[in-house]
Write a protein that binds this DNA or RNA. Structure first.
Lengths: 189, 189, 189, 189
DNA sequence: CAGTAAGCGAGACGGTACGTCGGGTCTTACC
DNA sequence: GGTAAGACCCGACGTACCGTCTCGCTTACTG
């Protein structure tokens, strides 16, 4: 059936859109019925695409991770100096995150698809940080895994600057990048 | 009734304990009935103390903030050099946070009592950072509000190092402090 | 709890009443929600009393059989001549049945609680017919079990005369009794 | 298309067969999908032939009534004595009914096509009973309409003897006929 | 020391969301 | 042009949880 794949994607997309909007607005209290209605689709159809509320959130998360992974790929992190690559990473996350604000309103563990996120986002970031350590751009006296965690966490903080404080994407990214790279302490020239 | 106040506190405490444990274990899916049972208390009594699930979470949050505020007071932030005060703040939060892991599993906006947290925790932190800027310890080229947000966010990240990666409290605090103050970039000689 | 048993009965009765009315009116298409609403009770409460639609119908059936068994007991079938006892049985069934018209609109096998109906209604009827055969009032050339089945079936037919044809209870009973006892053929002088 | 009419009948027949079997086995809980599958036909096709579940049941009923009407016609009721004609009617119904056991498991009002049944079955029966009254074979002291209802009802009871008690068709018919004509009371010679 | 008022457990209740399922309508591809 | 496949909407079903309520009991203060 030719229409199947296309239609499936269209419907799926409109459901994800509606879900993203509603969940961002009303948080976890948005009901499946509301989401279905807001997607212009029957409740049964919603369940056909995402058999569970949790599956829907995972779908949202998958889309977000796809989006983010695309931006990170496009950033060509391994072809620019480490400091620039870090800046691009922050900018990519903050920009993407603004699109998927819904996920910021939902519990942490729920949506982090452990596989996708790890392989498609964390891995390049880890590689970037390792390259930085290797070429002497980044300090080597901090535990690597902890730095990865802190950096990915700071990506969310940069997003929070935009969502909760109304900072511009560029300002938020720049500040976050600056803090991560050089810290808050005044440089003792 | 003389026993009232004491009893109220005892019961309230055991409810909060049970809630903290259960919510930390099972997240948002723990039901009020489970919490009541696990506190050795009738469901009705639970509702007498916390008329709403949200009120219960707020109670948890209040206790956590009390705890944290106590530690911050005890840290005498304004009587030690800024760098040391920052380290103490991180350590205080990470230490306290481990006790209140439950709150880390629940959505952001739910539990942040906007008043208490702001006045008792954020204010001293803001003061500390302002002092740092004023005395030249901290850089002045970053937007103050954003730095406050990033720093408080990094406190949570430090906690995450402990909860999710099994890092020790001291290591997590040290790494977080180092990253916040001096950044990840290698110092240029 | 003193109120429990009484209240349970009151609520249960009002649910059964509402169910009887609605099912008699609209047949199987009446929804559980409608029944609950019409009983002045929440849907959840309805399910607390009758965990399944089928259980509700069984409850209806139980009440109907109780009712009918009471009337049959009151008829003292074994203390009057067989012909009179047959007449009383028919009258009892037709009278009771009019109260439980709902069950006439629902599938046969669903509601016939095989135990209660058999022991409390069919047994006395069988005894009555056997007595009739023994004392020479009833013919002995027909298979006993078949006669029991035909008689109990004719009870339903007598009820049908009332429900579907608007015959009076007395007329319907008399005609049914007459047909069962003496048949439709003219007595040969 | 020349093959249409034939095909329509073939498909229609296989659907009716499947429906009769399934409904007889599982009662009202058989789903349209099951019936379609069991007829080796797509669900959509089933709906093309019988746009509604109710229409399908009516179709079943129509076929049953056709069958029954054929047998009644063949019985030449008006050309034999009344008692014999009654016996033939009972035998016709019981024989036909065994083929359409499905309908015995479904609610009364659903399948009785008011037109067909009335004109093709009840009318001859009524005529037969009226003839009996007119020629003195049947008693005249019972309300005619009620006797018709009771007699048609007893036809179903005779069928029930076969379906539920395993009686042979001949025995069941004979007993039912005997009971209807001469009653259960011993003849007072 | 007996009476009493408060807090407690137990649990029924109305309401609402969830996930499942069947009915009936429709479109698309195949033959 | 009719058939099979199957997506879609609608609404009922049965389950679970929330927050409210009313009981009857215990318990610790009070006259």
């Amino acid at each position: 059936m030719a229409r199947s794949p296309m239609m499936r994607d269209r419907v799926s997309a409109s459901i994800l859109d509606a879900a993203a909007t509603l969940l961002a607005e009303e948080g976890d209290s948005a009901s499946m019925a509301q989401i279905a209605a807001s997607a212009g689709v029957g409740r049964a159809t919603l369940y056909r695409y995402f058999p569970t509320r949790e599956a829907l959130v995972r779908g949202l998360s998958s889309a977000a991770i796809d989006d983010l992974a695309g931006r990170i790929d496009a950033a060509a992190l391994d072809q620019v100096p480490v400091r620039e690559a870090v800046a691009r990473t922050v900018r990519a996350f903050v920009t993407a995150g603004a699109t998927w604000a819904a996920l910021a309103r939902i519990g942490r563990e729920d949506w982090k698809d452990p596989v996708d996120l790890e392989t498609r986002v964390v891995t390049p970031v880890r590689a970037l940080l390792e390259r930085g350590v290797a070429d002497g751009t980044l300090r080597r006296d901090l535990p690597a895994q902890a730095v990865v965690t802190l950096f990915t966490g700071m990506l969310e903080l940069g997003l929070r600057l935009v969502l909760e404080q109304g900072l511009g994407v560029e300002d938020a990214s720049a500040t976050t990048t600056a803090l991560f790279l050089d810290g808050a302490a005044a440089q003792e020239s």
